[in-house]
Design a binder for these strands. Sequence first.
DNA 1: CCTTGCCTTAAACCTATGTTGAAGGTCTAA
DNA 2: TTAGACCTTCAACATAGGTTTAAGGCAAGG
Lengths: 158, 158
Amino acid sequence: MTYRIGEVAKKLGISTSALRFYDAHGLLPFVQRDAQGNREFTDNDLNYLDVITVLKKSGVPVATIADFIKLCMQGDDTLVQRYAYLEDTEQALDEQIRALKRQKAFLKFKQWYYQTAIEAGTETIHFKAGTHDFDPEAKREYLRLHPEAVDFAHFVED
Amino acid sequence: MTYRIGEVAKKLGISTSALRFYDAHGLLPFVQRDAQGNREFTDNDLNYLDVITVLKKSGVPVATIADFIKLCMQGDDTLVQRYAYLEDTEQALDEQIRALKRQKAFLKFKQWYYQTAIEAGTETIHFKAGTHDFDPEAKREYLRLHPEAVDFAHFVED
DNA sequence: CCTTGCCTTAAACCTATGTTGAAGGTCTAA
DNA sequence: TTAGACCTTCAACATAGGTTTAAGGCAAGG
């Protein structure tokens, strides 16, 4: 049983133009055509599209995914390469997660900054007296209250 | 004490062209100019640049960051708005982290898939007999061995 | 037979986020 | 006083990842 491009688009939530774009860039070499030249997607092709979708969401560029798919088409000789490839992707993913957590720690600090400012009715409590400049003491104060936030101590240079 | 654009670029690891681009797009309304028209960055401006950097790394578009900076320039009346803004950004960050973790769970499955294929010397152990089509049994088998991976059960439709 | 709804390709277009280059100003040190 | 190292603006270019549009083919229903 096969699917037409429009059905696949609906099933997977990918636009038909994106699917054609992927095909044009070598991500779908396995998709066959019918007598009229229309693409015929099999269930197995959808499995490949799941892999492609995950790699895309992991931030892997289309050209790099195309390399991986090429390896897949080459059979058992490339198994080790493909495994290494996925390990690299996983490491990149881990680094992205770590980076986002650092951004989150900083946002948490800024939320505390605004929360306390809102309670005080004014942001000036965080400024150096007589200026509109941040008092670095604010960051130190926060780190005293939230020692778990050392992750973002990177931002405290003082 | 002030810094010139090149010093700031070196200090923060942002190119001078990117800094000028941010200025042109309203992210640096606080930066003053000297008699020659050169930008003069203060230490406090660098604090704002830290905030901008974090928002950027959190995936917030430049135009949206500009809105936030505008609120910052408007004083205490916008404290609650600014807090809400940061909460929204944090939620978006949490969702990104959750999404990356789902991608990672799928990659882990694929790593198992290749690990076992490498041990067997061939990928065919995961195919339906006589075909090159994935046997959905592989996913079920993996979930039996790794019940913690239900996160990605989304991908198991069978 | 004609309309509707799919599908096809190729090429042009779009958005975000910068980068690069041209043309010129200022300051400092030799 | 001239060379070098900065800085300025403005406009053109680049890149990724699609989307849109134009022009056309095939098949089914009325």
